[in-house]
Design a protein around this nucleic acid. Structure first.
Lengths: 226, 226
DNA sequence: ATACATTGAACAAACGTTTGACTTATGATT
DNA sequence: AATCATAAGTCAAACGTTTGTTCAATGTAT
């Protein structure tokens, strides 16, 4: 009776629904067109609210964008594996190379499903990855709360798989893995066109299998799990 | 006496130098801030010319952007290996796996040096790669003249190295290689910071060696050339 | 009655574009 | 050789829109 999500909003959360709508519509628009490519009027119209409503709730355009980033930060752990989990699985795997391969598969599989599948967070990943090439006023917040924790988890995986190597090798290899996932996101239009696919989610198993195989090879693991 | 490039411009090429300056300054600015993030006034000021000069030479903002894209297209072959060259080298390599590795090294090395080294074209690669995630009115021109020819060359390499496999595997593996190079470009700020480097060009040999190794692994080649 | 939410109207600033006058090499005419 | 008409290039100023933001008025549940 109290708070039905979609409609109603009977009692106290009258404006809370508007906030949520603006964050959702805004993140999709900003991800697709870029921060400067979206005007407040376009955004308000797409969300079905008045122009002034955005400024009322978020204080302005930068405020809405920051609210979107902050919301993404709160769900980071649902998208990206945590360093402790990676460490635990690696310790359980020990020196068994097949078990190590399984840890890699788990890691990559989670990224593929959360970032390339039709999860709630596909636009979020798109938006965040753009900040790398075109930093905004939220960049430092993202470095602290998204990029660095995710990178740490990835480094734990890489150094656990490839063993002793140089710091440079670990860092760059970790970024190779990020590269593959984010590129599939950014270039999904032309990739789907070249494969004759319509969208990734319909072929997620094939996509997952191929990416997993290539990242295994990249890490020096056996590419087939025979 | 006739046409000294930098200064003078005594005779007929009075405006030709301005055009070149605007294309160079424009490509750097568009690459860094995005099309919508650069105003005509900012651009004109950065180039040291009057605001109206841009419209005079290129007809407007979209005209300048298109001129930049067209100039990039003319130098594509200096950046990206051509499909015929890849095919020729692969045929010369035959079934020797070490020779195949050398072809891969040549391919990747060229990309690393042209796109990540301080070549003339580093900003061009940055600008073009953004079109994948955020297509402009020049997108189809880029697909025809840059993306498709480059992708074809890459597919020749991939299918020549990994042998018979599915079409999906070839396409996605080719994109994995593109992914690594373009990501190093897009994320160069945070990568350099994490490595304690200042800029890629100062460490190009290390960068080249590590990327080469990882892409060899990704393709199922031996990672060390022992 | 009160506090929160939404609305249409207006604001100054910045946007891309256009205009007309001024400057300057070039090529034909004297 | 000196002169002049022409065309190309540059510039300051203004054009009409669109931008993000603000404000006073209205609506609405508690």
């Amino acid at each position: 009776m109290s708070g039905t999500k979609e409609e109603g909003a009977g009692r106290k959360a009258r404006g809370e629904e508007t906030r949520a709508t603006l964050i959702e519509v805004g993140s999709r628009l900003f991800a697709k067109k870029g921060y400067d490519g979206v005007s407040m009027r376009t955004l308000a119209a797409a969300a079905g609210v008045n122009l002034a409503t955005v400024s009322y709730h978020f204080g302005g355009k930068p405020g809405l964008y920051q609210a979107i980033i902050e919301q993404i930060i709160t769900v980071r752990d649902e998208i990206f594996p945590r360093a402790e989990d990676v460490r635990a699985r690696l310790e359980a795997a020990g020196d068994d190379i097949r078990a190590k391969g399984a840890v890699t598969d788990w890691f990559v599989g989670k990224l593929v499903h959360e970032m390339l599948g039709h999860s709630e967070y596909d636009w979020a990943a798109f938006l965040v990855s753009r900040e790398l090439a075109q930093p905004s006023h939220c960049y430092h917040m993202l470095v602290e709360n998204i990029f660095n924790p995710s990178f740490t988890a990835l480094c734990v995986l890489v150094s656990g798989i490839v063993g002793d190597t140089t710091h440079e090798d670990t860092v760059l290899t970790a970024h190779c893995i990020i590269a593959v996932i984010t590129h599939m996101l950014e270039a999904h239009i032309i990739i789907n066109q070249r494969l004759g696919w319509k969208e990734f989610p319909e072929h997620l198993d094939r996509l997952d299998a191929i990416i997993r195989k290539r990242i295994r090879g990249l890490l020096g693991l056996p590419m087939e799990d025979a």
